[in-house]
Simulated assay, not measured.
Amino acid sequence: MAKVSFVDETTAGAREPAWALEIFEERLTLRELVRRRIFQEVAEYNASRSGPFRGLVQPTRTERALNGDRESAPPRRVDPDRQVALAEEAFARNGFVVLVGDRQVDDLDQVVDLGRDTEVTFLKLVPLVGG
């Protein structure tokens, strides 16, 4: 069994605290690893529904401005399948990169080896101003 730590970082230097998930397989595709991460964070959010959802995929600042302030609205149930689809789209358009240990994984169907204390970093790319 592997204990996988998930870390979210941005190219601007922000780093969220790591959280862990126990995974019984020693090898998984990146797609399955992302799916399990998302299903776990959605399940935790849907159970508590406290505050805004802080998952892997977040609306952009522009989307939040166009859709209004949702944080004051009552929390809605988050659909994990929709979140997985959004994450796969974001990965395909280079919205984030994934590092397993110190190695970048650039294909969702690539199989990754999971050891006892594997760290998986989701590096969210911050668009350049004016670019």
Rank of each mutant, 00 (worst) to 15 (best):
T121W: 02
L123F: 07
R35M: 03
T118C: 06
A2E: 08
Q58P: 05
T60A: 11
K3V: 05
P80T: 03
A47G: 06
R35Q: 03
G115Q: 13
P80C: 07
V97R: 14
T29K: 10
V57I: 15
V112F: 07
V97A: 15
G130T: 06
V42K: 00
V4A: 01
F6W: 01
A92Q: 05
R54Y: 08
K124P: 08
D113N: 15
S72E: 14
L108A: 02
Q40E: 05
L108H: 04
L99D: 04
P52H: 14
W19L: 02
E25G: 04
A14M: 07
E25F: 07
R54M: 07
D69Y: 13
K3F: 01
D109Q: 13
A12H: 13
V7M: 03
A65H: 15
M1W: 11
A12G: 12
G68H: 09
S50L: 08
R116N: 04
R77H: 12
A65F: 15
V112P: 01
R64K: 15
T121P: 00
L128Y: 13
G95S: 04
R27T: 15
A65P: 08
A12P: 08
F24M: 08
V120E: 01
E71P: 05
L125P: 04
I38Q: 01
G68I: 06
R35C: 06
V42C: 02
D107V: 10
M1D: 10
S48N: 13
A73G: 04
T60G: 15
V126E: 14
V98A: 07
A2K: 04
R82I: 14
G13W: 05
M1K: 12
L125K: 03
G131A: 13
P17W: 04
G130A: 06
R77D: 11
R54F: 08
R37V: 00
L66P: 09
A43S: 10
D69H: 08
A12Y: 12
D113R: 12
A92K: 03
V126P: 06
T10M: 03
G13L: 03
E44D: 10
E119G: 03
T118L: 05
V111T: 12
L108K: 02
T60R: 09
D113V: 11
Y45G: 04
V78Y: 05
L66V: 12
T60E: 09
G95I: 07
L86G: 10
Q40F: 00
D8N: 06
E9P: 00
A18I: 07
Q104A: 12
A47L: 00
L28Q: 09
E63S: 15
K124R: 15
K3S: 05
R54D: 10
G95Y: 05
D117W: 02
E26F: 10
D109L: 13
V126N: 07
R37H: 03
V129K: 07
V57M: 14
R116Y: 12
R49V: 04
V105S: 07
R103T: 14
Q110F: 09
E119T: 11
Q110S: 14
D81Y: 02
